[in-house]
């Protein structure tokens, strides 16, 4: 199934020569392991723009390679992780973030499931509490009179 998900729009496929390199190539790596680890973490959250839901860290595409190199350059130049990410976002927009930023347009996305869970919990709680109450239906006027009569006869 997922094969069919891999190719993006047809024109992008035509445009990009068949990518044969593997993700994160040895030549890209930074000499400092700690810095490289940061670069990996930053690129794992950036979308490979010409792929389907792959991060640039995993992608074989040319553009992913370019962005990986950019991220590493920025980190080497002393950027924080957030600054390096921002450098990519300024070029490609929020679309490049695999984790969408929390803002009014994404509130439904971020808080929808939790809201639904809260709603479900409250709903089932009310349902469970209310149900025993349904049990015996209140007596009708006629039944009440009959009961009163019976009680009177007894007493």
């Amino acid at each position: 199934m997922r094969v069919l998900g891999r190719p993006v729009a047809a024109f992008l496929l035509i445009v990009w020569s068949v990518a044969t390199a593997l993700a994160v190539e040895p030549a890209e790596r930074l000499p400092d392991p700690a810095m490289e680890a940061r670069a990996r973490a930053v690129s794992a959250e950036l979308r490979c723009l010409v792929c389907q839901n792959e991060s640039i860290d995993e992608s074989h595409a040319d553009l992913a390679h370019d962005i990986r190199v950019l991220v590493r350059e920025r980190l080497s130049a002393g950027d924080t992780d957030a600054q390096a990410t921002a450098a990519v976002v300024s070029r490609y927009g929020d679309f490049v973030l695999l984790r969408p930023p929390v803002k009014p347009a994404t509130w439904v996305l971020w808080f929808g499931p939790v809201g639904l869970l809260a709603l479900g919990l409250i709903g089932s709680f009310l349902w469970l509490r209310r149900r025993p109450g349904i049990g015996p239906t209140p007596l009708t006027v006629a039944e009440q009179q009959q009961l009163d009569r019976l009680l009177r006869e007894d007493g």
């Binding site: 979308r47 490049v96 996305l109």
Partner: peptide
Amino acid sequence: GPKLSVGYPFFDRTFVPL
């Protein structure tokens, strides 16, 4: 609306806690 991507970092933070 704006263009968004939703990838594993999103699901890690929303689906997994559920």
